[in-house]
Write a protein that binds this DNA or RNA. Structure first.
Lengths: 359, 359
DNA sequence: CGCGCCAAAGACAGCGCTGTCAATTGTGCA
DNA sequence: TGCACAATTGACAGCGCTGTCTTTGGCGCG
């Protein structure tokens, strides 16, 4: 590149002092400035002070590319997701960003298709190209165990967020969320209101979380001695339209359910719309519950009973774990329990005599 | 760093061949490989072929950090936003990502507070730290003209997305969206249905788009010779709760409106919930219209009449413009017109005699 | 047959930072 | 006071790539 001194000065005007500039001004070596900038110990307080003043004065900001190229890694992590749910994605991004900003790491966002066979290789390339320090893997990417094994083989640090009742203790760090338990709580809430026929709208076949929630639903029914009926469980993906269609199918049954539990809020919103579109009222004719506490659940009418799952906090925690791990610190896995939030979309079923579809 | 040969070999195993590796295998210089990798002209076809085979064989991927550090810029752009709306943000990200993937650029996501006085300096630091090639500025960041002037002074390329009826032709490249016209269309739609008292729920005081939409509303009323009443225009931000509160206030008026136009879909969803919460029905008692065509509008019941604004496509276009500009190509500004989408939330007003609040 | 010219390819010096290791200084203790 | 040893600091060589400049080789033309 060979830039002249003049052009370097011009660059400086637009605001990019380098380590060397700072070093010259503080009368120390570049390496010492590097030490101060990275908060390393072995620098005498007065030297540190001098360097800090020079940094301040020149408004020095380390060039992340150079740091990444030079060092063992780039002080940047990747957030990998494969999810159709906008709120969920955004909450995850916010959580990751909060942790990264706090710990002075960069963040790269990476949507992907978790079903491709080359998942591990794709992620490896992603990491290598930008020399990422590690990955936060969210569901369902975090459930592709074979790909994860490969990733580990490539010596790529990662933290998984998974749906599990307890710490899997398999040596792979993770944050686990007890979806089964939360689904159990929601179903129990409906049962205690007096519902017996409760529909369940499944989501994302490939999502382990969906299976866990279904398990919680079944466990609760079993606990109350209520038979599990196939016709009350409808397949679908994590999207509104499937919720709408699924709920319509349930309502068309000879003996329709008095309550519908959607596997996430978007599905539940679809169910809500479906019920209202047939002229029935929520919660008087049909109760509806969701899962996630996304804005969907708060911003519908009536607002949805749901399980609060703070994706931002969960991902922030996972990100902090990852960075701690990258720094060589020991970290314990951590569990989260979604919490039941009761809102206006659930109520006791209408006495049988009056429950008849109008029209 | 001084790594041993052994350790380099190990690294190679996990998949990061370098320019030099490829050069050695192809029997050419590193620079020639660089030329091939960057699609430069002056390489003889047979040489290019040989290099490509070596690249293929070694599964070579350029290290983006090194490329960015070395070259004039990092082949990465930043997407800057300051917006409370999840769908909007996500749509924008998807649009930017589509363009970046296609053109082999990286993307950095950057939420920010557009109201801070140091906006220009913050963005400059953001650019310098990662040596970004340029920025896509979305509303309302794109409306901070003073900060933008500073940015231009720092020689940072950017493209704005703004709310304007026509090309401002001010020398700063932009994509412009005619919000006024779309709001005019929505208001006209309501007027043609027979509504006379139409409420307007404002959004985001700092958003120029909000003012443009208000202008469209007023222009339409004026065109139909209907007086503009202050009590029918309610302040608020772009969020559900303000829509809810604002609609309640409108309904509490001595003479409430028969239709409510929310400045975006989230506000309209709030208004929808407010109307339904008072026991009135949409659209029979009150019509509601939104703006944006976000999932909110499709996923409520009834689905909302709105103006379709494809944030993904708009941002993708802006991103392509930015990259073209970075490459030194000439690009013309481009305009988008949101399009009226009529759904179930709007209908003719109920004949006066029967319009009385129950309860 | 020799010359100039242009396309193709290579040499080399960085970009701004960090890891390693050597040099320097200061400290405690015999 | 002198010495071993630890705490600071600095010198230097890259990280993997690109910009500039130089060299090489093939070709047309007088």
């Amino acid at each position: 590149m060979t830039r002249t001194h003049e052009s370097r000065e011009m660059d400086r005007q637009v605001g990019s002092a380098t380590l060397d500039d700072v070093a010259r001004r503080a009368g120390v070596s570049a390496k010492t400035v590097s030490r101060v900038a990275n908060g390393e110990r072995s620098v005498r307080p007065e030297t540190r002070e001098r360097v800090l003043r020079a940094i301040e004065h020149l408004d020095y900001r380390p060039n992340l590319l150079a740091r990444g190229l030079s060092g063992a890694h780039a002080y940047t992590i990747g957030l990998v997701f494969d999810n159709p749910n906008a709120y969920y994605i955004l909450a995850m991004q916010q959580g990751a960003l909060a942790a990264c900003d706090d710990l002075h790491f960069g963040l790269q966002i990476r949507p992907c298709d978790s079903a491709v066979p080359t998942l591990a290789e794709d992620l490896r390339d992603f990491v290598h190209r930008s020399r990422l320090s590690g990955l936060v893997l969210t569901t369902p990417v975090s459930e592709r165990t074979k790909a994860l094994r490969k990733l580990a083989g490539y010596h790529i640090p990662f933290v998984r967020i998974i749906s599990a009742a307890r710490d899997p203790r398999d040596g792979v760090p993770c944050v686990y969320v007890d979806d089964r338990d939360a689904a159990y709580a929601i179903t129990t809430h409906l049962l205690q209101l007096g519902h017996v026929r409760i529909g369940f709208l499944r989501g994302g076949k490939h999502h382990h979380a969906s299976a866990e929630r279904l398990k919680g639903y079944k466990d609760a029914l079993r606990h109350y001695g209520i038979p599990i009926r196939d016709e009350l469980m409808v397949e679908g993906d994590y999207v509104f339209d499937d919720g709408f269609r699924g709920a319509r199918r349930l309502l068309d049954l000879a003996e329709p359910p008095t309550a519908i539990f959607g596997c996430n809020d978007e599905i539940a919103a679809g169910a809500l719309a479906a019920v209202q579109s047939t002229g029935l009222s929520v919660p008087h004719d049909v109760s509806i519950a969701g899962f996630e506490d996304s804005p969907f659940s708060r911003h519908s009418w009536p607002p949805l009973t749901t399980a609060r799952q703070r994706a931002d906090i969960i991902v922030e925690r996972a990100t902090r774990m990852l960075i701690a791990r990258i720094r060589g610190e020991h970290v314990d896995n951590e569990g989260f329990n979604p919490e039941l939030v009761v809102r206006g979309s659930t109520a006791p079923p209408r006495p049988k005599s009056r429950r008849r579809k109008p029209r």
